[in-house]
Structures are given as structure tokens and as C-alpha cells.
């Protein structure tokens, strides 16, 4: 068993190394493949140097904090609004009839398409970026919450009523925990979309932030920094999704994905 595992990890590592090697080769040769050219793509070594330079300069912390703050604000607001509205819509026909029509109209509009209007609507570019992040995370969270609430076993609800649960106890003890696995899925998807939206928004109207850093690198022709920015965005997205999943697992010790209830 152990040897099989070592072998598989070795294979995975080798695959990564091979990709790095290919990148190095293509960048070094300034390969021109017709459709796509590597003439301006920096090789891995230069990217590493740029990364070290960024960490050395101290500016990285400011970029990182700026992005993290925006995501935190927009995402947490989206989680609050999405879960609250989702539970209301899932539980009450009245809430569904009053809240859903406007939401359904807004839903197909990608968050990124809001950027110009958001810049016009909000007094600061900071607020408009938080708004874009919020919009990106809202719908995945809202939709998954509604589905989770609708999927709660009606027998559990009936049984809890029979044991004396009132309206609020029913929400707290049955509906919300029952919808939780679906809510966590929505939160994980929403985390991904909120990063995506934030980076895009920062490219257009930022002073600080990873998206701004990446776009600025392009305009100033610091090509290695472009890839540094891309890698940072990837790492941040990965880390925050991991955090959401860990929090989900912590909040639901009873839940085993795919297991019988």
C-alpha cells in the first residue's frame, strides 16, 4: 500500500515538474505557435524573482489586505443577505412571490456587467468594488439556500411540530440545519465567484489590490508581475474556499456527504 501511494505522489509531482519544464522551454525559446505566442511570457525563474522582489518591497501586504478587506465585506454581506432571503423564500410562498420576481430579473446579469453602473452609483470606487463582490457571491448563496430549504424532509418538519416546535423553533432546529449542507455548498461556490468578480473590478477601478497589481503590471510592462498576480489570486481563492469547507465541516459534525441521513 505504502509503495503504491509513494508512486502516485511521485507521479503527481513529476507531472507538475513537467509542466514547469514545458513553460521554461517555451518561454526561453520565445516560441511562436501561430495562434499563441510566448514571446512576452516570462520564464518561471523570472517570475520567482519578481515574487521575491514583491515580498521584499512590502507593497504586497497592502495589495493583499486591500483585496481581502473587499472580499470579506462583500462576501459576508452576501452570505447574510443570501441566507436570510433564501430561508424566507424557501419557507414562505408570500416571501417567494414578493422577493423572487426582482431577483429573477437581476439574476442573469453577470456581476461583472454591473461594473460601469456601480462606479456611477457609488460615491467611492471602494464601495463599488465591494458591491460587485457582493453581487457575485449573492446568487450562488441565495439559490443554494432556497434549494436546501425546499429539500428539507417534510416528515422531519411534521414530526418536530408534533413534538411541540413552534414557528421559530422549527426554523432554528429543523429548517436551517437541514438546509445547511446546501448552504455550505452555496457559500463555497460564492467564495469563488466573489474573488473572480473582485479581481475584475480591481482591474478597472483600483488603487491597491491583487487585481490592480496584475493589471498595472501589464500596463507598465512588468510581465513577470502579471504571473505573480495570477498565482496570488489562485492561492487566495484556494485558501478561502478551503476555509469555507473547513468551517462547514466544523459546523456540521453530523454530516457525511453521500452518506445516508
Amino acid at each position: 500500500m505504502a509503495s503504491v501511494r509513494t508512486y502516485r505522489w511521485a507521479l503527481r509531482g513529476l507531472s507538475l515538474l513537467l509542466c514547469l519544464g514545458l513553460w521554461q522551454l517555451l518561454a526561453q525559446q520565445h516560441a511562436d505557435l501561430g495562434l499563441v505566442t510566448f514571446r512576452n511570457v516570462p520564464p518561471p525563474g523570472e517570475v520567482l524573482q519578481a515574487l521575491l522582489a514583491l515580498f521584499g518591497s512590502g507593497a504586497w501586504a497592502r495589495h493583499l489586505v486591500a483585496s481581502l478587506e473587499r472580499v470579506a465585506a462583500g462576501y459576508l454581506l452576501a452570505a447574510l443577505v443570501g441566507i436570510t432571503l433564501g430561508v424566507a423564500i424557501g419557507r414562505s410562498r408570500w416571501a417567494a412571490d414578493t422577493l423572487l420576481p426582482p431577483l429573477e430579473v437581476l439574476r442573469p446579469i453577470p456581476a461583472v456587467a454591473w461594473i460601469p453602473l456601480a462606479i456611477l452609483m457609488f460615491p467611492s470606487s471602494e464601495l463599488s468594488m465591494v458591491f460587485i463582490t457582493f453581487t457575485g457571491a449573492l446568487f450562488p448563496i441565495l439559490l443554494n439556500t432556497v434549494h436546501g430549504v425546499e429539500a428539507v424532509d417534510p416528515r422531519l418538519v411534521a414530526s418536530a411540530k408534533g413534538l411541540g416546535a413552534g414557528r421559530w423553533a422549527l426554523l432554528r432546529e429543523v429548517v436551517v440545519p437541514g438546509a445547511m449542507p446546501s448552504v455550505v455548498t452555496g457559500l463555497a461556490i460564492g467564495m469563488g465567484t466573489s474573488w473572480f468578480c473582485l479581481v475584475t473590478a480591481e482591474m478597472i477601478s483600483g488603487q491597491w489590490g491583487i487585481g490592480y497589481f496584475t493589471w498595472e503590471a501589464y500596463t507598465l510592462q512588468n510581465y513577470p508581475d502579471i504571473i505573480v498576480g495570477m498565482l496570488l489570486i489562485g492561492v487566495l481563492g484556494l485558501a478561502s474556499s478551503w476555509l469555507v469547507k473547513r468551517l462547514g465541516a466544523w459546523a456540521m459534525p453530523w454530516y457525511r456527504p453521500g452518506g445516508r441521513p
Partner: peptide, 9 residues
């Protein structure tokens, strides 16, 4: 109930 309705959580 025929199938239990214990709260899984």
C-alpha cells in the same frame, strides 16, 4: 413514523 424522523444533526 414508519421510518424514523430523528433529527440527523
Amino acid at each position: 413514523f414508519q421510518h424514523h424522523t430523528l433529527l440527523p444533526w
